[in-house]
Computed example of a mutant assay.
Amino acid sequence: MTTPVRRHRGGAMQGSPVGWARNPLTEFDQLLSEMSGLMESTVGATAPAVAWTPLADVTESDDAFHVEIELPGVKSKDINVEANGQELVVTGEIKEKERKGVLRRSTRRTGSFEYRLRLPGEVDTEKINAQMSDGVLNITVPKAEVAKPRHIEISETSESTENKG
């Protein structure tokens, strides 16, 4: 049995970013997804799923690190957030829905996921806050007091008071 060949017209990929603007991990993820779909359509089943990494944004403010992880359709009871020193680990599972009829194609992710992040500074693990809203898990990781930047005021001394003593 031969597999179908996809051909692109025009040779090079048009409209895609060049150089560092392109994210090779996105392309690799898309390739894996297409290969999985091809395997599923020919064999009828896929190999046991391995943990995948959800999309996330990490920002830093003066007093905390903010992590936003996209988990559409996931219930908060199916998510586990752990902090150990400077490492933040979010694990969980997206359960597959029971369906009636034959599933012809699925591009949604299901199964176990894991997101690991090593934070660049000391954090206060006792005050970490996690909230789920509209399919986005928002985690606030406060910085430890020693890691927060502190503004130092510079006082002025006048020469007239120093020379009198």
Rank of each mutant, 00 (worst) to 15 (best):
N129P: 00
G19F: 06
E98C: 02
R150N: 11
S112T: 07
S106A: 05
A45Y: 09
E162T: 15
V67Y: 01
K127Y: 06
G85N: 02
E93W: 03
G101Q: 09
T140I: 15
Q14D: 11
P72H: 06
E27A: 10
E93Y: 05
E153H: 10
G135V: 14
K148A: 00
Q14Y: 07
K97W: 04
I94C: 03
V146P: 00
G85I: 02
P4G: 12
T53N: 12
K100G: 13
E153F: 04
E114F: 00
R150A: 15
I128T: 11
G10M: 12
V67C: 11
F113C: 01
R22I: 04
K100Q: 13
L25F: 09
E126S: 14
S112W: 01
R105Y: 02
R9C: 04
T157L: 11
E98A: 10
I69W: 02
L71E: 04
E156A: 13
D63R: 15
R109D: 01
I69C: 11
S155G: 06
Q131W: 12
V102R: 04
I152F: 08
V141I: 15
A49R: 15
R6I: 07
Q86C: 04
N84L: 05
T46I: 13
A130Q: 11
H8D: 06
T59N: 11
